[in-house]
Every structure is written in structure tokens, then in C-alpha cells.
Amino acid sequence: MLENFVVSLSNYLLTLSNGNLMIVAFYAGLFVALMTTFGALLAIFSNKMPDWGIDVCLSFAAGVMIVASFTSLILPAIESTSSFTPVGVGIFLGILLIYAIDRFVPHKHLVKGYEGPEELKDKLRVMWLIVLAVIIHNLPEGLAVGTSIVFDLKTGLVTAIAVGIQDFPEGIVVSLPLATLQKKRLQPILMGVLSGVAEWIMVLVGAFFFTIFHNLLPYGLGLAGGAMLYVTVKEMIPEIYKHEKNELLVTAGFFLGFYVMLFLDSMLG
């Protein structure tokens, strides 16, 4: 059933875009940005969110990202080239890219606290530091959608659907803490929208670059996969388990995301 839906959606988008993958990428990016926005709208109900809710949202997103890194990016790239080398180089570059961003862009995690250049620590408001942290998380996801659409439209759309699903709780993650800290509603929602727009831009950047430099696509798939793995393992998992509370719920959230992405991918066989 899902396979028929994705095939029909692929054909519809190709017809709508006259076969232009950039237009397809535009719609896919719009979808993930809207899902982030819908999650951000829950900031209106911030007082009703349980303490463990943000951790479960993050863990669900982590489960989706772990599976998507392999099933939508790394393994298809290896199969298409029958070689590990370009994918391995891409993974390394993806890790290096996010490490550099993580090292030099000031941002603040909810639990781990501030990361980035110390001289900028007191020059940005807490609101922007949290938003920058979420944008860093979202960049590999946007890149993953854009590159996978260029590689294979059906795989790309499944990736967009899965990323969109997990962007809903990620929109909650960026907006609710801000709403709680500031006792406001509009500004946190706008910050959540901003993080979704950043991801949309990365979808377009990834699709545009690898449409032009198609020979580099295996490296791009590896790069997106490595970047997602780095963010998940280095940032998200330590963040969700740092509290050492509600570990069963957090773990259940992770495996729910894991199963959702695995199910979506397996339906296309």
C-alpha cells in the first residue's frame, strides 16, 4: 500500500514538475519545513507538556535518523558503486563538516549546555543559542533528503516522509523550551519555523549541488549519512540520557522511531 502511494506520489510530482528534480526537492523541503512548523505550534500549549516529553521527542528523532543514515544513504551508495571507498570518504567528510560547525558555531544544548567559541558565549541570547543547536541538528536531515531525491526519487520521498514525521517532534523540541523560558508564544513558534526553513534550504542545496555534480553523488550520500550519524551519536543520544530519568520511555521513543523508518523503507523493498 505504501509502495503504491510513493510510486503514485513520485509520478505525480514528476508530472507536476515536468521532470525537474529541483522542483520535486522544493516540494519535499516544503513538506519537512511545514512538519517542523506544526510541531512548533505546540508551543501554544507549553504548560501541558510533561517533563519527559522533550526527551522522548528527541529519542524518536534519533531512532529515525539512525536507520535513515543506513537504509536511505550509506547502503544504497555502496550498492550503486559496488565500492566502500567513495562512501567511506563521504562519511568522514560528513563527520568532519558537522564537527567543524559544532566547534565554531556557538550553540546551547538543553542539558549539555554551551558549545562553541568561548568568546561568543555571552554575546548571543539563550534563545538564539538553542535555535542554532537545533539548526545544526537539522542540516544533515535536509542534506539527506536532497541527495537521496537525486539518487532515487522513491528513496528520496520515503526519506522526506520519515524526516517530516520526526521533524514534528523536533519542532516541539525547539519551541517548547523557549516558550517555557520566555513565557511567550509567538517568538518561540517563529524560531521553530526558522529551523524548518533552514532544513528546507539544505534540501535545495543538496539537490542542486548533486544534480550538477552527479558523479560525486556517492560521496554526497556518504556525507549526509555520516553527518546524521555524528549528530545522533554525539549530540542527541547523550542529550536524551543525561537526565538519567524516564530511561524506559526514552528508549521506547528511540525504538519507535527506529521501527517507523525501518517500516517505511522496507515497504519499498
Results as ranks from 00 to 15, higher is better:
Lys121Arg: 06
Val64Ala: 06
Ser82Ile: 11
Tyr241Asn: 07
Ile23Asp: 08
Met65Cys: 06
Phe45Met: 03
Lys48Asn: 15
Met228Leu: 06
Asp55Gly: 14
Ile189Gln: 03
Leu41Ile: 05
Gly90His: 07
Ile165Arg: 08
Ala227Ile: 09
Gly171Ser: 00
Leu262Val: 00
Leu41Gln: 07
Asp152Cys: 01
Ile74Asp: 11
Glu3Ile: 10
Leu249Phe: 15
Ile95Tyr: 05
Trp128Gln: 12
Val260Asp: 03
Pro218Thr: 00
Val6Ser: 03
Val105Ile: 09
Pro218Ala: 04
Trp52Lys: 13
Met35Gly: 05
Leu129Phe: 08
Ala40Ser: 01
Val32Trp: 09
Val87Ser: 06
Gly192Met: 07
Met202Glu: 12
Phe151Cys: 07
Leu262Ser: 11
Ala160Thr: 01
Thr251Pro: 00
Leu264Met: 03
Gly113His: 05
Val250Leu: 09
Gln166Lys: 02
Leu129Trp: 09
Glu119Ile: 13
Phe255Tyr: 10
Ala100Gln: 09
Gly269Val: 12
Gly39Thr: 09
Pro106Thr: 09
Leu249Pro: 00
Met267Cys: 10
Val174Met: 05
Leu249Gln: 15
Val233Leu: 14
Asn20Ala: 00
Thr71Ala: 01
His137Ala: 02
Ile237Gln: 10
Asn138Val: 02
Thr36Met: 08
Ala68His: 00
Asn138Met: 00
Val64Lys: 02
Ser195Leu: 01
Leu41Phe: 15
Lys245Pro: 00
Tyr259Ser: 15
Pro76Ile: 01
Ala224Trp: 13
Phe70Glu: 01
Ser10Met: 05
Asn18Pro: 06
Val173His: 01
Leu132Cys: 04
Ile23Arg: 07
Val56Thr: 09
Ala207Ile: 08
Glu239Trp: 01
Tyr27Leu: 12
Gly63Val: 04
Val111Asp: 15
Val7Met: 12
Ile165Met: 10
Val32Gln: 11
Lys183His: 15
Glu170Arg: 09
Leu73Arg: 08
Leu249Gly: 05
Tyr259Thr: 15
Ser175Cys: 08
Leu14Tyr: 08
Ala133Pro: 06
Phe92Lys: 05
Leu157Asn: 01
Pro76Ala: 03
Ile54Trp: 14
Phe258Ile: 01
Ser46Gln: 11
Thr15Phe: 13
Gln187Ser: 11
Gly116Arg: 02
Glu3Ala: 14
Thr37Met: 08
Thr147His: 02
